[in-house]
Simulated scan of single mutants.
Amino acid sequence: MALRFVPAATSLALALALAACSAPPTPEQLPFFEPGVEFTVNQVGTGCKADGAYRAKVSWDVPPSMSSKIEVQVGDDRAGVFARSNESTGSEETGDWVRDGTLFVMIDRDTEMVLAAVKAGPGNCTAPALETVGD
């Protein structure tokens, strides 16, 4: 009876491995934009937390000829999904966690094609530190 479960487990492992391989790689040259795509990460307000983290606004504008089903992934491993949208134009604010070098990658959810990729710049940390609830 154990033999019946081995093929299913093997098939599941193979499917997971193929899914992991199918994710498009992050472009080596950053910033990266497909033609006509606009994608920005800009600090909101002034000031940073003591560790240099700041709040940012992530904005996108994808041409109508491309899919409007986008996903914004965060981090070098792109494991974190920051935003999902069915709108070709939009924006979303982060919390106080963006730092210099934080990677943002926007993909087309239908095709898994990378539409844009940028790294956040350093925050304007000359103003007093941001105060947040719970700090």
Results as ranks from 00 to 15, higher is better:
22 S>N: 14
27 P>Y: 07
131 E>P: 00
15 A>S: 04
132 T>Y: 04
3 L>K: 10
78 R>K: 09
6 V>I: 14
94 T>E: 03
52 G>E: 01
54 Y>P: 00
60 W>Q: 02
75 G>C: 08
53 A>V: 03
109 R>S: 08
104 F>W: 06
47 G>E: 01
122 P>K: 12
30 L>A: 08
119 K>S: 03
80 G>Y: 14
73 Q>T: 10
62 V>M: 15
119 K>F: 01
100 D>M: 13
8 A>C: 08
120 A>F: 01
15 A>L: 12
44 V>H: 06
57 K>L: 15
98 V>H: 05
63 P>Y: 12
22 S>A: 15
133 V>Y: 06
4 R>P: 01
118 V>D: 02
119 K>H: 00
5 F>H: 15
81 V>Q: 10
20 A>H: 11
76 D>Q: 12
66 M>E: 11
57 K>C: 08
119 K>L: 04
89 T>H: 14
85 S>W: 13
60 W>S: 02
4 R>W: 11
116 A>K: 07
64 P>N: 12
62 V>A: 13
107 I>C: 02
73 Q>C: 09
85 S>Y: 13
9 A>Y: 00
94 T>D: 06
104 F>C: 05
85 S>E: 11
106 M>C: 01
89 T>F: 11
105 V>I: 02
37 V>L: 05
120 A>W: 00
94 T>S: 13
73 Q>V: 11
91 S>M: 12
11 S>T: 11
76 D>E: 09
12 L>N: 09
12 L>H: 09
110 D>L: 13
127 A>T: 01
123 G>L: 05
23 A>Y: 00
17 A>T: 07
110 D>W: 06
41 V>C: 06
28 E>V: 05
76 D>M: 11
17 A>L: 15
127 A>L: 04
8 A>W: 12
66 M>Y: 15
105 V>G: 02
46 T>S: 12
113 M>H: 11
26 T>P: 08
111 T>P: 00
29 Q>C: 00
40 T>E: 12
70 I>K: 10
120 A>C: 03
94 T>A: 07
50 A>Y: 05
113 M>C: 04
132 T>M: 11
69 K>F: 00
56 A>W: 01
37 V>Q: 04
121 G>Q: 08
77 D>N: 13
49 K>S: 04
27 P>K: 12
128 P>I: 08
10 T>Q: 14
70 I>S: 05
